[in-house]
Computed example of a mutant assay.
Amino acid sequence: MDIQVQSFAVTNLRRRPVVVETGGFIAGFTPDTDNPYMNYATPLPGAEPTEQDVAALIAIFRERGLLPRLEFAPQAAPAVAPALRAAGFGTEAVHEYLICTPRTLALPRSGVSPHVESPTTDEEFTELDAALAEAFGGVFDPSPQGAVRLRRTQQSGGAVRFVRDPRGGIAGGASCSPPAENTAELTGVGTRPACRGRGIAAAVTASLTEAMFHQGAGSVWLEYSGEGSRRVYERAGYRPQGTRLYLSLPPAQQP
């Protein structure tokens, strides 16, 4: 599964507005933001980069004024992490990823789960972007570009879902990438703090996962941020499968 997830990561980065390929790496950039989670690289499965390959990758980020950064499944390219660490890259995080298949998917009971919708209007995409920004505690700010990215995800073959707040606005939601390599990535599951504990994350997770299976994906994968969210995903049918490594080059180490 590591190779499938890594192959997906390569294909998904190639969907970015700006893509640069060098020395066994794919770097994907989003020009309207310097957010490191929107600008990063990943290796091709089995890549064995040289010192010169890593230096070239660093240069690609430096010329854009961005943090050199990678996300990848290390078991799919075992030679990559040692080569990056030799150049001064450090570990940001190691995240476990979970996988759901049509066989393991567990849908919430109807009548108990919150009503899930797909955004259709500019107002709904904008409100969802604002809700997710609040849910993630300022990791990113709500913006017109964020709303456009959500709409683009839906229009390009992915899916976006949300749950309304009975008091007005949107309580929470998430999105899922278009399928590639027979899998898809579910990301950004977030609920406004005042609306948590209502089953919103579980509802949008199940809805998005089911939507990808209807589009023919053989699996959906995601990363979780804590044991509470992990339990939500496991109840929806997600199971531990592997790890993803996040590496970046601290400014003091950049040549």
Rank of each mutant, 00 (worst) to 15 (best):
P142C: 09
A9C: 15
A83G: 11
A201Y: 09
I60E: 15
Y224Q: 07
P68K: 02
G169M: 12
A211D: 13
E124D: 04
T243S: 11
C100N: 07
T50C: 07
G168S: 08
G226I: 04
G46W: 14
G216D: 03
A76W: 03
P114G: 02
F8I: 09
G24H: 04
E71G: 13
V112H: 14
M38C: 09
F162G: 08
G88K: 08
R167W: 06
P179S: 09
C176Q: 05
G168K: 08
G90R: 12
A171Y: 11
R103F: 05
G24E: 13
E96C: 08
Q75T: 11
V10G: 05
R230S: 05
H214G: 07
A236W: 00
H95I: 05
V20Q: 06
F213I: 02
T191K: 04
A194R: 08
H95D: 09
A76N: 11
L70V: 14
L13G: 05
Q253I: 00
V220D: 04
A211V: 07
R149Q: 14
L247I: 01
G137D: 11
E185C: 14
C176G: 01
H95K: 09
E71W: 14
L150K: 07
A27T: 04
R69F: 13
G226M: 01
P82C: 00
H115Y: 03
A236H: 01
L66G: 00
I26H: 01
G237V: 01
E63N: 03
T50E: 08
E223T: 14
Q215K: 15
A81C: 07
V94F: 02
Y246M: 14
D32C: 06
A77Y: 07
P82E: 02
P166S: 15
L150A: 00
E185L: 14
L98Q: 10
F162M: 13
V139D: 10
T187G: 10
I200K: 00
Y224G: 02
N39F: 01
L128E: 03
S156H: 15
